[in-house]
């Protein structure tokens, strides 16, 4: 007799636990307000990334097309994957001194792991992380970028 009661109690417990689980899914079924997914390409306008989000490395330029990069090469040295290459050229200033200036700051986005070390170690704060994230391109070579804009020059008073 006792075993029959146990048998029935077991069935009852099992069914009630199952119904408890069904209550959870049933609750969400009738509460469409709980939907958490976002409709991505539609919400692009409203989509604001957090300000610290590491999307890609960019070089800070001011309105006069001047940057802070002194071509010292510290970012290149600190990059773990070799995604930064600095090509510098030597120019002679008016007073006859030879000086190393930045020619191209080449950045391979495809190799970057967004570790933030280049931005952190840059002595003149020339780099920053941008919040863009739509990096998909059809050709891998397009992921190699030149960070300094054409015609940009070093800001006066940075290379002290």
């Amino acid at each position: 007799m006792k075993s029959i009661i146990n048998y029935l109690a077991e069935i009852f417990r099992g069914v009630s636990a199952l119904i408890k689980g069904m209550k959870v899914t049933g609750y969400y079924f009738i509460h469409p307000g709980e939907i958490v997914t976002q409709q991505y390409p539609e919400n692009r306008k409203k989509l604001v990334m957090f300000e610290r989000f590491k999307g890609e490395v960019v070089m800070i330029h001011n309105e006069n097309n001047e940057h802070h990069c002194t071509a010292c090469g510290i970012c290149e040295m600190n990059c773990p994957n070799g995604s930064i290459e600095i090509i510098s050229k030597t120019v002679t200033s008016e007073d006859g001194k030879k000086k190393k200036v930045l020619a191209h700051h080449i950045y391979h986005l495809g190799m970057c792991t967004f570790c933030n070390l280049c931005v952190k170690t840059c002595p003149s704060n020339a780099l920053k992380m941008d919040q863009t994230f739509e990096h998909a391109v059809f050709d891998r070579t397009k992921l190699t970028k030149v960070l300094n804009r054409p015609g940009s020059v070093l800001m006066k008073g940075v290379d002290k």
């Binding site: 957090f50 610290r52 967004f114 570790c115 933030n116 952190k120």
Partner: peptide
């Protein structure tokens, strides 16, 4: 994402403290 700048691969620690 708000604090570390990344969602999965945080890289938030550096020797001696935080990024």
């Amino acid at each position: 994402e708000e604090t570390c700048g990344a969602r999965l691969l945080l890289s938030y620690n550096v020797p001696g403290g935080l990024m």
